[in-house]
Amino acid sequence: MNVSGNSPARKLVYWGSHYLMIGAFVVFALFPLYWLLKVSVTPNDILYTEGVRMWPSRTTWENYFFVLTQSNFPHYFLNSVIVAGTTAIVTTMVAAVTGYSFSRFAFRGKMIIVALMLITQMFPLVMLIAPIFKILAPLGLTDSLTGLIIVYTAFNVPFATFLMQSFFDGIPKDLEEAAMIDGNTRFQAFRRIILPLTLPGVAATLGFVFTAAWSELLFALMLVSSESASTFPVGLLSFVSKFSVDFGQMMAAGVLALIPACAFFLLIQRYLVQGLTAGAVKG
């Protein structure tokens, strides 16, 4: 029975179907991105006439040129880099200490805090916009990048904390005990021994939060009204309204905006799987 399972013919069928399915997934994942790219390099005059062709008869960089030089897009882009970057760093720091305490300490009220964090995942966030606006307005934090960063950080901390906790769970307790005996306080041991060991986890969390903050539209739209504090998703929407839906330019802006998020994600996705595995072994 088993011998036939290893026969060359069966192997061929097995790996053939394996690669076929993998291929289908890759195509499904990439085709929409390809279409985005295609539209962005299609000249305006043939955008609709050659709408369904797999590749336009002429291509142009004009859309990119316009977006980079004639629009506010570089400014939005910079705002987004500041907001997503700061949110990622602050969230990861907060999630690291919280995840560490979840992983290492047993303390009164821990279950309540964990439950609280789980419940926050159930909030219809739309509902929080008006109250958050009301709380932030007197503090001068509406229409500001700082306000956005605070809100994004709070939204992302729960999931980032669970992520970081699973990374810490994979690291033996002995290590910080050894460090404490070697002369560290617990916090020093955490910072100098444990944190360097979870660098892949830190990278994964950074990337995860960065992409989330980079894409957020709803709060960016509702909490910010001025051009100067707008992030790129809002700016992208402005292509829809202001320029009577200039799709070519919008898609070009979209492709440009995709680059940092995708680059980040490409780098960290491996650590995400590794880190979750390490945590899963123990839990």
Partner: peptide, 28 residues
């Protein structure tokens, strides 16, 4: 392959929404 198939997760949702709406449109 792993890097590529995970990519959609990094795409801003409204952008993928617009893109899919575009792809469902018979004109474009």
């Amino acid at each position: 392959v792993q890097a590529l198939v995970f990519l959609p997760w990094a795409v801003p949702t409204f952008l993928s929404g617009l893109n899919w709406a575009w792809m469902f449109n018979p004109v474009v």
